[in-house]
């Protein structure tokens, strides 16, 4: 008798989320199998790889992470263009660092204006992130949602303390959201349940929060893995959202990345690849070389 490999088939799938619009719109998620288990089901969309753009000139970046952007670092529009045209980014992540209340504390209006200009400069899908300050992010992201109505951004992070306001604005103005709950699948589920009372689940991406190689990467791996298992194997429909990982910011904080260029690039690429193996659907990367390496590995 011929050998038949035992296969795990799941009758459910991770929701497919559409980012952006027009020809450059990208889909993420949609798989009914665990990462790389092509023999068990279909993984229709390759992982989304976003390059990060800051809305203000970065401070204290190591020379080799600043170097690719040196000529555009003070101008988010040119930075965004360079990421798309020169580095081949298919998704951008605009981090509104200027709005940090502990830093420049730029107003929601100023931030939204920058976003508006970046949108005009590029046509790829946009992730727009605040700084994680619940109160300020709520003001900023609501303004961004309004000013860029209908652009189908991925807005985040949406937290337990501000999900109602931000998700309401995203709903009204046609955007997706990143629901963030730190390192706890139970809390991820709880936030999703709360959101889905008024927000469409197919517009939610979850962020269990990331950590870099050597700084707790295993925890992130386990939690991404368990989210996918709860969603597919346990068929928990509140756990079937694509997973987001903010990789670059964590990696370029590390001592090792700051020590040398090659080490930094590999640190970021290794961390990113590891999260893809766990099941992440969308990575935010910082160094174009890390993007190139991951793309090379993930492109058939």
């Amino acid at each position: 008798m011929a050998y038949e490999a035992p296969l795990e088939k799941y009758p459910v799938k991770i929701r497919e989320v559409i980012l952006g619009g027009g020809e450059k719109a990208r889909k993420i998620g949609g798989e009914n199998a665990l990462p790389l288990h092509f023999f068990e089901g279909s993984l229709p969309n390759p992982p989304g790889l976003a390059l990060e753009v800051l809305d203000t000139r970065p401070e204290n970046w190591a020379p080799w992470i600043l170097e690719p952007f040196e000529d555009v670092a003070s101008d988010p529009m040119s930075w965004a263009k360079k990421c798309v045209e020169e580095f081949g980014a298919e998704i951008l992540c605009l981090r509104l660092l200027s709005t940090d209340p502990a830093g420049k504390d730029a107003s929601p209006g100023e931030a939204a204006k920058t976003v508006e200009q970046v949108v005009k400069a590029v046509d790829v899908p946009l992730v727009v992130l605040g700084t994680g300050d619940e109160e300020k992010d709520s003001q900023v992201l609501i303004e961004v949602a309004r000013v860029c109505s209908g652009k189908n951004f991925l807005l985040g992070p949406v937290l337990k303390g501000n999900y109602q306001e931000i998700a309401q604005a995203a709903l009204e103005h046609g955007h997706c959201i990143v629901a963030q709950a730190s390192m706890d699948a139970n809390l991820t589920k709880e936030l999703n349940i709360a959101l889905c009372k008024f927000f469409p689940p197919e517009r939610i991406v979850v962020d269990p929060t990331s950590s870099a190689l050597g700084y707790g990467m295993e925890y992130t791996f386990s939690i991404i893995e368990s989210i996918k298992l709860f969603g597919l194997a346990d068929r928990d429909n509140m756990m079937q959202m694509p997973v987001f990982a903010d990789v670059g910011i964590e990696c370029w904080r590390t001592k090792e990345a700051k020590e040398s260029r090659d080490q930094g690039v590999l640190w970021e690429a290794t961390t990113g690849i590891t999260f893809l193996l766990a099941g992440a659907n969308l990575l935010v990367l910082r160094h174009p070389e890390a993007l190139r390496l991951i793309k090379k590995i993930t492109t058939p």
Partner: peptide
């Protein structure tokens, strides 16, 4: 253990 616990388990 049939469904993942969350504080809002009654709401789903």
């Amino acid at each position: 253990g049939r469904t993942l616990y969350s504080h809002s388990w009654l709401e789903v």
